[in-house]
C-alpha cells in the first residue's frame, strides 16, 4: 500500500514539475504549448542514453551518473526549444499550438523510426535510479521521492521568484496585450523566448525523471494524452497563473488517474481494456467541464476569462 502511495507521489511530483513549466509558458506568458511531449521525449531519451550501459543496437550507453543524465536532459531540451523558437514563436496563438503539436508528433516519429538512435519501438530498458545498486530497491524509492520532491520545490521557488521579479512583470505585459506593452518588439521577443526555453528545459527534466523512475521508455511512453493533454488538464484544474494551484492540480488529477486505475484493476479483465478509454472519456469531459464551469480553476485569477471588450 505504502509503495503505491510513494509511486503516486513521485509521479505526481514529476507531473507537478511539468505543470509548473507549462504554467510559466501559458499562465504567465500566454504561449499555448500543445507539444509538451516533444520535450518529454528529448529529456527522457537524452538522460536514458547518457546513463544506460552500451548496447550494439543504438547509440549512447555512456553509463554516466544520474546527475549527468539530468543535465543532459536540460541542455538538449533547452537547445531544441531555442532552435524552435525562431520559427515558432513568431506565430500567434492557434498557429503556435498547431506547430508545437506537429513538432511533438514529428519527434515521436523520429523516436519511433530511428532505431539507431533510440532503439525504435523496442525502447530503452534498464534506466538506472541513482544509488539503487548501493541501497537496494526500497530505500531507493524513498530517495527518488526525495529527489523528485526536491526538484519540484526548487522549480516552484524559482518560478515564484521569477514571476515576482521585473522579468516576471515583463512576462505579464507580454501575455496581457503585446500591442499595448510598452516594451520594444525585441524585448518582447526575448522574454517570450526565455520563458519558452526555460519552460522546455523544465519539461525535459520532468521527462528524465519519468524515465529514471519507470526504468523503461519507448515511443509510446509519451502519448498526446499522457503528455500534452493531461498536463493542460492539471493546470486548468489548479488554476493557470497560480504555481501552487497547478501543483495541486497535478496531484489531484494524478490522484484521480491512479484511483481509477485501482477501480479498473478490480473489474473483470474483459472490461479492463475498455476501462482505460472510459477514463480517457472522463478526462475529456472533465477538461470541458472545467472550462465551462470554473475556467479559472481552483486557485487561478478570474481575469483569464474576462469579457473581451475587443469583441464588440
Amino acid at each position: 500500500m505504502l509503495s503505491y502511495f510513494i509511486s503516486y507521489l513521485i509521479m505526481a511530483s514529476t507531473y507537478g514539475i511539468a505543470a509548473l513549466a507549462l504554467n510559466l509558458q501559458w499562465g504567465f506568458t500566454g504561449l499555448m504549448n500543445f507539444g509538451i511531449g516533444a520535450f518529454y521525449f528529448v529529456g527522457a531519451y537524452t538522460s536514458a542514453l547518457l546513463t544506460t550501459s552500451a548496447s550494439p543496437d543504438y547509440v549512447g550507453g555512456f553509463g554516466l551518473p544520474f546527475i549527468v543524465g539530468l543535465l543532459g536532459a536540460v541542455v538538449l531540451s533547452g537547445l531544441l526549444a531555442y532552435v524552435l523558437a525562431f520559427p515558432a514563436l513568431r506565430l500567434r496563438g492557434g498557429f503556435f499550438a498547431i506547430s508545437m503539436l506537429a513538432i511533438s508528433e514529428t519527434i515521436r516519429l523520429i523516436v519511433k523510426n530511428e532505431k539507431w538512435l533510440t532503439n525504435g519501438v523496442w525502447g530503452i530498458r534498464g534506466i538506472p535510479q541513482p544509488l539503487r545498486n548501493l541501497v537496494g530497491a526500497d530505500l531507493s524509492e524513498w530517495i527518488y521521492l526525495g529527489i523528485a520532491a526536491a526538484l519540484l520545490f526548487i522549480f516552484y521557488r524559482l518560478s515564484e521568484v521569477g514571476v515576482r521579479s521585473p522579468w516576471g512583470r515583463m512576462l505579464n505585459a507580454v501575455r496581457e496585450d503585446e500591442k499595448m506593452a510598452e516594451m520594444s518588439g525585441k524585448d518582447s521577443w526575448n522574454v517570450k523566448m526565455q520563458s519558452f526555453v526555460f519552460g522546455s528545459m523544465i519539461m525535459g527534466v520532468s521527462g528524465a525523471l519519468y524515465a529514471h523512475y519507470i526504468g523503461f521508455i519507448s515511443p509510446s511512453s509519451f502519448t498526446p494524452l499522457m503528455s500534452t493533454f493531461i498536463v493542460w488538464l492539471m493546470i486548468l484544474l489548479g488554476g493557470t497563473g497560480s504555481n501552487k494551484g497547478v501543483i495541486l492540480g497535478a496531484f489531484v488529477v494524478w490522484g484521480v488517474w491512479i484511483g481509477s486505475e485501482f477501480l479498473i484493476g478490480v473489474l473483470p479483465s474483459g472490461i479492463t481494456s475498455k476501462a482505460g478509454f472510459v477514463r480517457m472519456l472522463l478526462m475529456g469531459i472533465l477538461l470541458d467541464a472545467i472550462l465551462l464551469i470554473r475556467p479559472q480553476g481552483l486557485f487561478g485569477r478570474e481575469k483569464v476569462i474576462s469579457k473581451l471588450g475587443s469583441k464588440e
Partner: peptide, 12 residues
C-alpha cells in the same frame, strides 16, 4: 485559445 483547448477535450 480556450476554444482550441475545449476542442482538444472533444477530440479525446
Amino acid at each position: 485559445l480556450f476554444l482550441a483547448l475545449s476542442s482538444l477535450g472533444v477530440a479525446f
